[in-house]
């Protein structure tokens, strides 16, 4: 079945191919947007199930991938809205360690932890723009499609996010 052109895939074949190629990255994307791993995987599985029923309209892997991303971003957004994961997370999160060890690995680790923590605290749409740009490596047009906003809005969310992160990045 791997040799058949993708436009001839049935919905099951499309799900299998897109699962193999993208499932793990989708789960990782969702967990960066949510910071809750169990829920991340549920949202991504929901997206694949929805893709299965939409395949007859999409027909092409590129379109299907864009649809998956959009559905995952949306699913994370609703989950955050409804379950207030961010609030729970911020309430539970600990302040970053004060005294970095001189050990190089530990310094690197503290840098990364501080940056991820700062990204977690960004408003939802700013975080989406940053994660889609720097983790998934999408173009501005692809980010706009995944977020369901205009390219201009992506630009402004991203630039506000980078401005918010700058003080942390400069301190490092």
């Amino acid at each position: 079945m791997a040799d058949r052109p993708s436009t001839e895939w049935d919905a099951d074949q499309a799900v299998t191919h897109l699962f193999g190629a993208h499932y793990r990255q989708m789960v990782r994307l969702a967990s960066l947007l949510l910071h809750e791993r169990g829920l991340a995987e549920e949202i991504v599985q929901d997206a694949y199930v929805r893709l299965h029923s939409r395949w007859h309209k999409l027909r092409e892997p590129d379109k299907a991938l864009a649809y998956l991303r959009m559905t995952v971003v949306n699913g994370c957004r609703s989950a955050l809205r409804h379950r207030r994961v961010v609030d729970a997370h911020l309430a539970a999160s600990r302040p970053p360690p004060d005294v970095p060890s001189a050990e190089a690995g530990a310094l690197d680790l503290l840098t990364q932890a501080a940056v991820v923590d700062a990204i977690r605290r960004l408003p939802t749409r700013q975080r989406e723009a940053i994660v889609l740009r720097y983790y998934v490596d999408l173009s501005e047009a692809e980010i706009a499609e995944a977020m369901g906003v205009s390219r201009g809005a992506v630009k402004s969310h991203a630039s506000r996010a980078v401005a918010a992160l700058r003080p942390i990045l400069e301190r490092l």
């Binding site: 990782r28 994307l29 967990s31 960066l32 840098t111 990364q112 932890a113 940056v115 991820v116 990204i119 940053i130 994660v131 720097y134 983790y135 992160l165 990045l169 490092l172």
Partner: peptide, 10 residues
């Protein structure tokens, strides 16, 4: 820095 931090967390 952002890229590496996100990749490490993911």
């Amino acid at each position: 820095t952002i890229r590496r931090a996100l990749e490490a967390a993911a």
